[in-house]
Computed example of a mutant assay.
Amino acid sequence: MPPNQGRAAGLAAMSELSEAVLAVARHLDTSTVLRTILRSARELVGAEYAALGVPDGAGSFARFLVEGVSDEQWRRIGPLPRQHGMLGVMMQDPHPQRLADITADPRFNWWPAAHPQLRGFLGVPIRDGQEILGALFLGNTDPDGVGEGECFTQEDEAVLEILAAHAAIALTHARLYERERELAITTERARLARELHDAVAQKLFALRLTVQAAQSLIETEPTRAREQLAQVGALATEAATELSTAVGELRAPDLAGDGLAETLRKQVAVVDRAHAAHGGPRVAFRCCPPPHLPPTHDQVVLRVAQEALHNALRHAHAQRIDLSLCAISEQDAEAEHFPGGARLVVRDDGVGFDAGTSGRGLGLVSMRERADSVGGRLTVRAKPGEGTVIELEVPGGRG
Rank of each mutant, 00 (worst) to 15 (best):
D298H: 03
Q267S: 14
E219A: 14
A284Q: 13
R224K: 15
R224E: 15
T237Q: 15
Q228L: 14
C287G: 00
C287E: 08
G233A: 13
R282M: 11
P253C: 01
E262V: 06
L229S: 12
E262Y: 00
R314I: 11
L302E: 01
R314E: 07
H310R: 05
T263L: 03
G233F: 08
Q228I: 01
V271C: 09
A236E: 09
L250E: 11
V304Q: 00
H317T: 08
L264H: 03
A318Y: 04
P222S: 11
R282Q: 14
V283Y: 03
N311A: 12
G259T: 08
D258P: 01
R286W: 00
H292R: 14
S216W: 09
A276V: 12
V271H: 08
T245V: 14
A316G: 07
A305D: 02
L235A: 04
R320C: 01
Q267F: 11
Q319M: 10
A261F: 00
A274E: 04
F285W: 05
G279K: 08
H315A: 05
T245F: 11
A277V: 02
N311G: 06
A312G: 11
T223K: 06
R320E: 07
A246Y: 06
P294H: 06
L264I: 05
V247H: 05
A246S: 15
H292Q: 14
V300Y: 00
L229K: 13
E238N: 09
T296M: 11
R282C: 10
A284K: 06
Q215K: 10
R224V: 10
A234I: 01
A256N: 04
L264A: 02
H297F: 01
P222Y: 10
E242V: 02
A305S: 02
H278C: 00
L309Y: 01
G279A: 07
P295L: 01
E219C: 11
Q319F: 04
V271Q: 08
P295F: 03
V304A: 04
V247G: 02
A240V: 12
A234E: 12
D254A: 15
E307W: 01
D258F: 06
A318R: 06
G233E: 14
Q319R: 13
D258R: 03
R251S: 13
L217D: 13
L250K: 12
P295G: 04
E238R: 13
V247K: 08
A284R: 10
A252M: 11
E219R: 15
T263A: 07
E219K: 12
L293I: 10
I218V: 15
D272C: 11
R314L: 15
L313K: 05
H275G: 01
A252D: 10
A230H: 14
A236Y: 08
E221H: 13
E307P: 00
A261V: 03
C288T: 14
G233W: 09
C288L: 13
V300K: 00
